[in-house]
Computed example of a mutant assay.
Amino acid sequence: MKRARFLSVLSILAGGLFGLIASTQTWLDVTINDGAAEALHVAGADAIALMAPLSLAAIAAAITLSIAGLAFRYVLGTLSVVIGVALLVLNVRLITGASAHDVAAAVTEATGIAGDSAIAEMVTALTQTPWVSVTVIAWLLVIGGGLLALVTARSWASAGKKYRVSTNAAAHTGPLDKIDSWDDLSRGEDPTQSA
C-alpha cells in the first residue's frame, strides 16, 4: 500500500474539484407558467445549497491529508466520508424526484414570487440534465478516498521527516564559523549567546 496516501488524496481532491465544477453547471431546467418562452436554468449550487461549500471542504481535506500526522489522517478520512455521504444522499434525492422546493430560490429570483405553494403552482415541468447523475461519481470518489485513508492511514510514511531538526546534536562549544552558526540556529539556539 505504498501508494495509498497518493490514491486517497487524489481521489478526494478529484471528487471535490469535480463537485465544485458541477455546482456551476445547469442541473435542472424549469418550465414555469409565467409566459416566458424559455426554461429557467438552475445550477447545481442552487439545487443543493451545500454543494459548493462541501466540495471546497473536500478539497481542503485532501490537501491537508497529504501532510497530516496519524491522528489527523483518521479525522480527515472520516470527514471526507461524511462529506461524500451527505452530498450523495442529497444528490440521489434529486435523481429520484426533484420538486419545486429544489428550485424555489431560482424561481423566486427570476419571478419575485415566494412561498412554496405559489412556486409549486408556477412550476409546470422539471427536467434534469446529465450533471445530476454524473456528479454521483464525484461523491463516490470522495467517499472512496476517505475510506482508503481510514483503512491505510497507519501504514503511511510520516510527512516532512526530512525537514525535522535533530535535537540530539550537541551544540558547538569551540570558536564559531559561519556553518557552526547556521547549525546552532537550526537547533533553535542563538549563536550570538554562546561563549
Rank of each mutant, 00 (worst) to 15 (best):
A106W: 06
L90A: 12
V89M: 04
V103F: 03
R93K: 07
A106H: 06
A106Q: 09
S99N: 01
T124S: 05
A104Q: 12
A110Y: 04
V123L: 11
T111N: 09
V107D: 00
D116N: 12
A114D: 15
A98R: 05
A105P: 14
M122F: 05
V103P: 02
G115P: 13
D116E: 15
A105E: 12
V103H: 02
A105V: 11
A120M: 08
V103W: 01
S99Y: 00
A114Y: 11
E109W: 09
A104I: 05
V123K: 08
E121N: 15
I113N: 13
G115C: 09
T108K: 11
A120E: 14
R93P: 00
A118H: 13
G112N: 10
M122T: 06
A120K: 07
T111M: 10
E121V: 14
R93H: 06
D102K: 09
D116Q: 15
I95C: 04
R93M: 09
N91Y: 10
T108S: 14
L94C: 04
V107R: 00
L88A: 15
L88I: 11
G115R: 09
A118Q: 14
M122A: 13
T124I: 04
I95T: 09
G112T: 10
A98I: 02
N91R: 12
S99F: 00
L94F: 03
A120N: 10
T124K: 03
I95D: 03
L94K: 00
L90C: 03
G97I: 02
E109N: 15
S117E: 13
A125V: 00
I113F: 13
A118K: 12
V107H: 00
I95E: 05
A104E: 12
A100T: 12
A114Q: 13
A125P: 01
H101C: 00
D116W: 11
M122L: 15
A104C: 10
I95K: 02
V107N: 00
A105Q: 13
T108R: 07
A105C: 08
S117C: 04
V123P: 10
D102H: 11
V103Y: 01
I119N: 07
A105R: 06
G115A: 10
D102Q: 08
A110H: 10
H101Y: 03
V89N: 01
